[in-house]
């Protein structure tokens, strides 16, 4: 086997190795939010939920 063939085979191995890919992804946990606080979070969420639900009925249904 010539050096060239060995080199070629080596190259093929290297190239083919690139074709192997894990079919799963890694998911990471987020860190703790470090930014300013959003007043939206402390607003009366129940009242807002009612308003948003009414709005949804008014606007997103075919009527």
């Amino acid at each position: 086997m010539s050096k060239l063939n060995v080199l070629l085979m080596g190259l093929v191995v290297v190239v083919l190795a690139g074709c192997n890919q894990s079919s799963s992804v890694t998911v990471h946990k987020p860190g703790v939010y470090k930014g300013a606080s959003d007043p939206l979070l402390s607003a009366n969420t129940e009242e807002r939920a009612t308003a948003l639900s009414e709005r949804f009925t008014m606007g997103q249904l075919d009527r």
Binding site: S23, S24, V25, T26, V27, H28, K29, P30, G31
Partner: peptide, 13 residues
């Protein structure tokens, strides 16, 4: 960002 491995899931469509 904390690179803590949480879980492995199959790739989404």
């Amino acid at each position: 960002m904390k690179l803590i491995k949480k879980q492995r899931v199959s790739q989404g469509s």
